[in-house]
Design a protein around this nucleic acid. Structure first.
Lengths: 192, 192
DNA sequence: GCAGACGACTAGACGGTGTCTACTCATCCT
DNA sequence: AGGATGAGTAGACACCGTCTAGTCGTCTGC
C-alpha cells in the first residue's frame, strides 16, 4: 500500500494484481475492496458501478500493453517488417503471460456499457499497427487499414485460441513463432 | 413446453433461447429454472453444477453451428475454395447473429473445467475445415493443419472483433465480405 | 395387495455478490 | 465557531450458486 496513492489508484492496482494472479473470476468488488483495506462500499465513491472499476482495470492493461509495445519497438531496427514481427510477439506474449488481464480487456460487456472509453484506449495501438503496415506494404490496395484490421484480427484469434488450448492441440505446434511468421507472410507477402 | 421432452433437454433449450435473446448475463441457474417452470434445485439432478448446464448449452451451439455449416455446404459447388468461402460466411454469420451464444461457446472457464468434452464437440468442424484446406491447397508446406489453424484463428478474431465493434470502426468497413475474402486469399493464395 | 425403495422434484438455509441508503467523522471555508 | 462537504463505514436488500432435508408418486419384490 503506497503512501501517497489515492484509493482510486489503489483499487485499480490491487484489482490488476488480482486478475493477473487469480484470474477474472476473482475480481469481485468486495474482494478488491478487502485487499485494498477498505469497506465494500468505499469503491462506490470513485466507481459508481463494479463494471466501471473493471473497465478501469482493463484500460490499465491497454496502457501497459502499449508501453510494452513501444519499449520493444525502441530496440528494434527500423525495418517495418521486423518491427511488425516484434509487435506481434509482444501482443502474443502479453496475451499468453497475462491471460486473465487479456480476457478482461476483451469482455464485451465492458465495452457496451456507455462512455467507458475503453475502445479509445486501444485505438493508439491500432494506429501504430496501421502505420507499420503502411510502411511495410507500399501497395495501395487493399488499404493499409483493412490489412491492419485483418492482421489484428488474426493476432487476436491466435492469442485467444492459443490460450484456449485448442490451437496447439489441433495443429500440434508447441511454439507460436512459426504461426506468427506465417501470419505476417500471409498478410504482407513474403519477407524481404 | 413440449410434451415428451425431458427436463434435461428443456433446460438446455430454454437456456439456449435465453442466451440468444437476452445475452450471456441472463442465464443464471435460477432464471433458467424459472423459465422451465421448475424450482431452482431441480436442474441439479441433471447438471451437478451451473457450469455444466452452461457447458451443455454451449455444446448445443456447436451442434447447431456444425449443422448450419453442413447445410450450407450441401448447396455449394464442389470447388474447395468456394466451399471454404461458404464455411467462413456461415461461421461469421453465426457469430454475428447469435453473438450471445457465440460468446458463451468461447468462455474459457467452460473449457478448463474438466471432462466437459466441449473441445471434442468443436473438433469435427475443425476437421472439416482442415479437409477443405487440404483440397484447396495441394502444396504440402505448411501442412494443412497449420493453415487451417491459422485460418480458423483469423476467422475467430474477425468475428470477435467485429462483434466487439472496433473492427468496422477502425477499418471503416460496413460489410465483412471484403475482409473475409482478403483472409482467404492471405492464407490460401489468390483465388483461381 | 402392500411395504419399501427409488426417482424427480420442492423448499429452505447458507454464504457470497452488487447496489443502495443512512450514518459517522475529520477537514475546510467563511 | 459552526455549517458544509468529502471520504469512508455499516447494514439492508434482492439475487445468486450450492447444499440438505423432505415430499410425493411410481415401481418392484414378496
Amino acid at each position: 500500500m503506497r503512501a501517497d496513492e489515492g484509493l482510486r489508484d489503489r483499487l485499480i492496482r490491487v484489482g490488476g494484481q488480482l486478475v493477473d494472479h487469480e484470474g477474472p473470476s476473482a475480481i469481485s468488488l468486495r474482494e478488491i475492496a478487502r485487499r485494498a483495506g477498505v469497506s465494500h462500499g468505499a469503491p462506490r465513491r470513485y466507481f459508481p458501478t463494479h463494471l466501471e472499476l473493471l473497465s478501469a482495470i482493463a484500460r490499465d492493461g491497454y496502457t501497459e500493453l502499449t508501453a510494452r509495445a513501444t519499449a520493444a519497438l525502441a530496440e528494434t531496427p527500423a525495418d517495418p517488417r521486423a518491427r511488425l514481427a516484434a509487435l506481434a510477439r509482444v501482443y502474443f506474449d502479453f496475451a499468453a503471460t497475462r491471460s486473465g488481464r487479456y480476457e478482461l480487456m476483451f469482455r464485451h460487456d465492458l465495452l457496451e456499457s456507455g462512455h467507458l472509453r475503453l475502445r479509445d484506449t486501444s485505438l493508439p495501438l491500432f494506429l501504430l499497427l496501421t502505420d507499420l503496415v503502411a510502411q511495410a506494404r507500399p501497395e495501395p490496395e487493399p488499404p493499409a487499414q483493412v490489412v491492419a484490421g485483418a492482421l489484428w484480427a488474426n493476432l487476436h484469434g491466435i492469442a485467444q485460441l492459443w490460450n484456449w488450448g485448442s490451437l496447439p492441440l489441433a495443429t500440434g505446434a508447441t511454439d507460436p513463432g512459426a504461426l506468427l511468421d506465417a501470419t505476417l507472410t500471409a498478410h504482407l507477402g513474403p519477407a524481404a
